[in-house]
Amino acid sequence: MQLSLWLALAGAGVLISFTPGAGAINTMNNSLTSGFRRSIWGILGQQAALIVHIIVVALGVGVLVAGSPVLFNVIRYAGAAYLVYLGIRLILQKPGSQRDPTMPVTREPARSMFRRGFWVNLLNPKALVFFLAFMPQFIRPEQPLLPQYLVLTVTVVLIDVVVMWFFFAVAAKSFQRFTNTARGQLILNRTFGVLFVTVALLLALVH
């Protein structure tokens, strides 16, 4: 891949990663509830789903999903339902007692954080449609395809990891003081719960 083309890809990747969405909300919530360092597990789960999206599009399956309203809507509503579930669970979650501000509120297992991040990103069919429009701009069919897809995947994943971890996860730390009290935890839980539900509604209703 030519340097100029890669720079364009990197620039587009940065813009995509900074676009707020369910992944960003999930990352910030993980950072607040489990700590900045451990939030990486949710981010890695999101990247695993992103890689699946890229593979699906590269294999041509994404065209079938985008071209089938029924299949597209099944995935779309499943994704929206999962986000609503996450949102309601946060809204109904009872806050813990007052804690040491230097310690995270919970110690959710890394596997659980990874799994949730994976499903949050995977159950978004619009990501498939986006990559269908995005990827051809940076792939030259007359050149070997595998190296190009590898460069694209590594570039997009690394950029998203950096943005999620060092922007959204760090940004969440500014709200860390709220987790020191039961009332603050309740406010944050309900705030992020509402955000998850809002993103779910946008996913389900906006075409």
Results as ranks from 00 to 15, higher is better:
Leu64Cys: 00
Leu64Ser: 10
Val65Lys: 06
Val65Ser: 02
Val65Met: 12
Ala66Gly: 03
Ala66Trp: 00
Ala66Glu: 11
Ala66Thr: 08
Gly67Ala: 09
Ser68Gln: 09
Ser68Asp: 15
Pro69Trp: 08
Leu71Glu: 01
Leu71Val: 13
Phe72Tyr: 15
Phe72Leu: 14
Asn73Tyr: 03
Asn73Met: 06
Val74Arg: 05
Val74Lys: 04
Val74Phe: 06
Val74Tyr: 08
Ile75Thr: 01
Ile75Gly: 07
Ile75Gln: 05
Arg76Thr: 04
Arg76Glu: 01
Ala78Phe: 08
Gly79Ser: 11
Ala80Val: 06
Ala80Phe: 02
Leu83Tyr: 02
Leu83His: 00
Leu83Thr: 01
Val84Phe: 10
Tyr85Glu: 06
Tyr85Arg: 08
Leu86Ser: 01
Leu86Trp: 03
Ile88Thr: 07
Arg89Lys: 14
Arg89Tyr: 01
Arg89Cys: 00
Arg89Glu: 09
Leu90Thr: 00
Ile91Met: 13
Leu92Arg: 14
Gln93Val: 02
Gln93Cys: 04
Gln93Thr: 11
Lys94Asp: 01
Pro95Leu: 00
Pro95Ser: 03
Pro95Trp: 02
Gly96Thr: 13
Gly96Glu: 09
Ser97Arg: 10
Ser97Phe: 11
Ser97Asn: 13
Ser97Ala: 14
Gln98Gly: 01
Gln98Asp: 11
Arg99Ser: 14
Asp100Cys: 07
Asp100Ala: 06
Thr102Arg: 15
Thr102Val: 13
Thr102Cys: 07
Thr102Glu: 15
Met103Lys: 14
Met103Asn: 10
Pro104Trp: 09
Pro104Gln: 11
Val105Trp: 05
Thr106His: 14
Thr106Val: 07
Arg107Thr: 11
Glu108Met: 14
Pro109Asp: 06
Pro109Val: 01
Pro109Ser: 07
Ala110His: 09
Arg111Gly: 15
Arg111Cys: 03
Arg111Pro: 00
Ser112Arg: 15
Met113Asn: 05
Met113Ile: 04
Phe114Ala: 12
Arg115Asn: 04
Arg115Cys: 07
Arg116Ile: 15
Arg116Pro: 00
Arg116His: 05
Gly117Gln: 11
Gly117Asp: 10
Gly117Pro: 12
Phe118Ser: 06
Phe118Arg: 04
Trp119Val: 05
Trp119Gly: 06
Trp119Thr: 03
Val120Asn: 03
Leu122Gln: 04
Ala127Ile: 10
Ala127His: 03
Ala127Pro: 00
Ala127Trp: 02
Ala127Asn: 08
Leu128Asp: 02
Val129Gly: 13
Phe130Leu: 15
Leu132Gln: 10
Leu132Met: 14
Leu132Ile: 13
Leu132Trp: 06
